[in-house]
Write a protein that binds this DNA or RNA. Structure first.
Lengths: 334, 334
DNA sequence: TCTTGCAGTTACATCGTTGCAGAAATATCG
DNA sequence: CGATATTTCTGCAACGATGTAACTGCAAGA
């Protein structure tokens, strides 16, 4: 059996509550008493039982992180950073993979996962604002990376539209005129896909070009999605001189397929992505992309969530934070 | 305040304990009573308080996963799979990043992290067998991916040596004679690095070649480590016609640097890696590597750990499981 | 001298659940 | 039919911590 506070109290010759008071930095304790207790703790190797503490206090000091798939590089890198930031503030992160299904996202928002955590970092992919509002519960919730344009919620996001505009403009500025865009999601206007598509279209307009639906290809936001999309494009005979993958894995999958088919990158087709995952720098050719401020997102989202949990920064309304972005011009689209 | 078992008991008109019995599938309950309880649960939307249950039962139904860095693709992909397998068996996974330091690994093995979990999946990188033995504690522990050759511990690993031998032999079979190996760790004989190096050297020997220390380069097991290592090799003027990265990220970083320097892959230098992360398939050229049976490792390690936790498969001694491997011959080393 | 006030400590209840032991109701048997 | 099993259900204690309230000294003030 593990050492309990009772054991500590007994060996220190004080009451259970005094031990508790020492551990919780209660003000009025005689230094001598405090020392006795600390000695007993050291002697017995006592460690507080977190479960008991949680039951009593109602706090778990865990943050929930809901995302579709931890094996996706962007999410893996984000999760890693979030965990580090949380750790610095004395919290752990419990990850839940939703596979982007409605059912799983609702479960994460309502069910036992919620119980285990003091607050949630939530990437809504299948749910809309009203779903989230209904299932929100009473614990703090910070939305991540998606633009659910709703002042009810805290949101930490990136400049999807501006960044997509900027990188598309970069492609156009280098003389490209037929920029295919991969990873479009039909009907989506407020998700990452919709917002990035908007930036893409705005950049076309700004350059005096029309949007050609043939150049927008739906696909999974994964490497094989990008590869499949390029296969479709090439096989359909649509002409294009640049590719904008709505995230890096799509762009990398696309680039791979282009090179396999003997298309020269960037000479014949330039390729750009979005996210600046570590892999982008080391691809061959290295991938031009946009860094959406992941460090800032990690810092601010965890900071905001913990502030909410601890009752600081008690704004009634949702905060909307947008991280800055930077273009990373590399060899795939110089 | 959330609905408790007491509320359910009151509305169902039974005792607290009967509700508990229903929830725990106690045998002797009249169907009618059971139905009353279930109805009350549904009506009130009751959900068991996991913290209270944990305090009482001493079980958290969480598995701990200790690894160095979740943003490393191999670990991200492994963690994702482990979480899925655990989820199917009703467990969650709590991840702890150790940054491969002794201090953090010991903390994960002993401290509060251990308390939060019913058992640990542990990737020892800084700790040796005796450290682990000292810090083991009384909860189940399954070592992952490392060969700590110690019958005291459960271990799920891969055929590091055989697989490294096989892939080195593949390079040699294609006529390469000067195979640089990147990611060596001095002194290591039992870690992933040591075991893969052993396979490499055995393959050289089998082909009648001597081991040339100039061809073994130390580096971090990351993309930039591989790139740096190649820079060193090229700048030092050592001749080589193939590169074996001790993991895929090293190999990919190396390949990137080779291509940047104008070295043709695979014509001038063949490149092979280890792990078969998803990225390998989509690199350009696609990366020849070895798939170390990640699915099998995930299934068996979680299975073994949960069996230990639940007291099945009660072998006293440690189990040593080795997943099978497969070569994936791709364009970087055909 | 007797309050009054505060520092320092304590006992007890409580968080929501499950294990244990036993009570009540029903079934089985000679 | 009474005695003994067996089924069904209940009350109490416990898991290990913290909040509340109350108690004990001791110093200051009246």
């Amino acid at each position: 059996m593990a050492v309990t506070m009772n054991d500590v109290a007994r060996t220190a010759g004080v009451s259970l509550k005094t031990v508790s008071n020492v551990l919780n930095d209660y003000e009025f304790i005689r230094p001598a008493t405090k020392q006795k207790v600390l000695d007993a703790i050291a002697a017995l190797g006592y460690e507080a039982n977190l479960t008991a503490r949680s039951l009593r206090s109602g706090k778990t000091r865990m943050l929930g992180l809901v995302l579709s798939d931890l094996s996706a590089p962007y999410y893996a890198e984000l999760a890693s950073r979030l965990m580090k930031v949380a750790s610095d503030r004395g919290y752990r992160v419990l990850v839940e993979q939703s596979a982007a299904t409605r059912e799983n996202e609702l479960a994460a928002l309502q069910g036992q996962f919620r119980q285990l955590t003091d607050g949630l970092l939530f990437t809504p992919l299948a749910l809309g604002p009203d779903d989230v509002a209904v299932a929100q519960g009473d614990k703090p919730l910070v939305l991540l990376g998606e633009h659910i344009a709703d002042p009810r919620f805290d949101l930490v996001t990136m400049k999807n539209t501006e960044a997509a505009h900027a990188i598309t403009s970069h492609l156009l500025a280098s003389g490209r005129r037929r920029v295919a865009v991969l990873g479009a999601v039909p009907e989506d206007t407020t998700g990452s896909s919709g917002l990035r598509m908007l930036g893409y279209r705005q950049a076309l307009t700004a350059a005096g070009l029309d949007f050609d639906p043939d150049l927008a290809v739906m696909c999974d936001w994964r490497r094989d999605g990008g590869a499949t999309a390029i296969r479709q494009l090439l096989d359909s005979g649509v002409q294009f001189d640049a590719v904008f993958g709505l995230n890096d894995t799509v762009a990398l999958g696309a680039m791979h397929e282009l090179l396999m088919r003997g298309v020269k990158v960037p000479d014949e087709v330039a390729v750009a992505g979005f996210d600046d995952i570590d892999e982008a720098r080391f691809a061959s050719p290295s991938l031009t992309t946009v860094a959406p401020g992941m460090d800032e997102i990690a810092e601010r989202s965890v900071g905001l969530l913990i502030d909410r949990i601890e009752g600081n920064g008690a704004t009634a309304n949702g905060m909307q934070l947008e991280a800055g972005f930077e273009l990373r011009i590399r060899d795939s689209a110089p």
